[in-house]
Design a protein around this nucleic acid. Structure first.
Lengths: 328, 328
DNA sequence: TTGAAAGCGGTACCAA
DNA sequence: TTGGTACCGCTTTCAA
């Protein structure tokens, strides 16, 4: 049985209040008594029951992190960054996976709220008025990453739309005449329902905007269609493929390599996220580093401010960086 | 301010005990009173404070998961499996990342204990007598995955040593004359200190055993040395490279492909873990599926038994499966 | 069937 | 400087 404050108090013949003063560096205690109590605490191997502390103080120093899953390295990088910052500030991570189901997501969030999480960082898969209302009723600080919900929830992100606009320009400046965009939602789409595709939507929108501006026709593939992909290098037009995430780019690169099609002379490829797996892949895929470190740090620090009731700002946009590679 | 049992009691002119009986389907309450209370609870939007419940019952229905990091898909697969099972059983995951530092790991585990986690699943990076003693003093159910600590802590694993023995035989049966093993600890080694390398050690040991048994000399690379790797296909001996984890295999495959060396005719390659990224890589890398789903499920269910005080068994070994590919 | 009260393990305030 | 005690919100036991 773990040692409690009561036992230390008995052991030292003082009151619980005095033990508390000693243990928590509170004022109003003589150095001598304090030393005696601290020694006893050490001797008895006292460890505070954080649950009781939480109940008494009303703060759990726990933040919930709600994510679809852990398969995407982009997300796990963000979670690592959040965890690092949280730990530094004495906060704790409760992890809830939504498995890309909006209803499971809400369930998990409710759970976190009932457990008195001080705040929640969500990579939302749900959206809509009803969804928003539920979140608002929780009355708990929330920050979103990746997918935005609405102006009611502070969102931290890179400007994916701007990135894609710039990506198109960059690709065109390298002499490509056509850019094919792979608008593939991946496993998320399978879950059906009211899915939030904010981020992928922004990426695609940026592509479309920039193509329009350049007077080019959009050329979008909605599925991983090998035949369609293999027909691209045939065209006399010099073509590049723009992928909204790196895993897709890796897959495409491997397809072409397998078929003996040279990259980038016969086809250009660009990814997005700059996941660390790219370091192991040849040729090095051109991508965009979204600065997960800074994203996670910012999300946490904004949440911290919100929990302290001192955040008034709006959404935050983090800077990004195009990474050089050999596929463009 | 959230509604409490006290308020419902006042609202209904009953005692807190009665409210509790209604809310938690306990015996000894009339159907009428119960209905009245439940209606009030709904009306007032009552949500139990789980913290208080935990304090009163002594159970948090939370299990801690302690892992080095989230970069390795093998680990995140396991965590996903654990989370799925935990959620199904009404348990919650508290995630602690050790960043491959034994001291941070211990710190995190202590934290979990103070938060009254009901049990902990650890992917240990620490080991040793002192380490074990600290864990034992916690007096909290622990199950280890990946790296084993000692007989004092129930370990769930695939038999990596046996797998590697079999892998060597498998490779030899395909006609290879020499097998090079890449004994690379990766980023873990950087953290220094008393690192636990149980799993990688087992893998390497299996290789050595099987090579010895076949009367072959061990051929081990201790670093990712491109020059050494590129010299291998030159030898007249038909050589295969055995990698203790897939990321390494991916890297090696890409190196050879870049240099125009054909796999598997000029060099064979085998990975380990069968991470899902392999689906995107050509050629398909031969690997070993360690059944993360079952590993995670088993780890959780054993922990569940331990928490209920009804686990007497010892370490558990999960079956595995060699996955076919094009690199052998 | 219901109420009252004693915990759970801390925190915090008021008196002494 | 210290002790005493109410309280955080729920559970549980004992009486009524």
């Amino acid at each position: 049985m773990p040692v409690t404050i009561r036992e230390i108090a008995d052991y030292c013949n003082v009151s619980e209040g005095t033990v508390d003063r000693a243990l928590n560096n509170r004022a109003g205690i003589s150095a001598k008594t304090k030393e005696r109590i601290l020694a006893a605490a050490r001797e008895l191997d006292y460890r505070p029951n954080i649950l009781a502390q939480c109940l008494a103080t009303g703060s759990t120093r726990t933040i919930g992190v709600v994510c679809g899953g852990l398969s995407n390295r982009f997300f796990t990088s963000l979670i690592e960054a959040i965890e690092r910052n949280a730990t530094q500030h004495g906060y704790f991570i409760s992890l809830v996976l939504s498995h890309n189901s909006p209803s499971k997501e809400l369930e998990g969030i409710h759970y976190l709220a009932r457990r008195q999480a001080d705040g929640i960082i969500i990579f939302p898969v749900g959206y809509g008025k009803a969804y928003e209302k539920e979140l608002e009723q929780l009355n708990i600080p929330i920050v979103t990453l990746y997918n935005r919900i609405s102006a009611s929830f502070t969102h931290v992100d890179t400007d994916c739309r701007a990135i894609m606009r710039e990506a198109v320009q960059k690709i065109l400046s390298k002499g490509y005449k056509d850019i094919v965009y792979m608008d593939i939602k991946g496993s998320n789409a399978l879950s059906g329902g009211n899915m939030n595709f904010f981020s992928l939507g922004e990426r695609c929108a940026g592509y479309k905007e920039s193509m329009g501006q350049a007077g080019l026709e959009c050329h979008i593939l909605n599925s991983y269609d090998e035949r369609a992909l293999l027909s691209l290098p045939d065209s006399s037009a010099h073509t590049a493929i723009l992928c909204p995430y790196d895993v897709l780019a890796i897959r495409v690169v491997n397809l072409y390599r397998k078929m003996g099609i040279h990259i980038p002379s016969q086809i250009g490829i660009m990814g997005f996220d700059n996941i660390d797996m790219l370091e192991n892949i040849t040729p090095r895929i051109n991508s965009v580093d979204c600065n997960t470190e800074k994203l996670g740090e910012t999300a946490f620090s904004i949440l911290l401010d919100k929990m302290a009731g001192r955040y008034t700002g709006k959404d935050v946009t983090i800077d990004y960086r195009f990474t050089e590679g050999e596929t463009l």
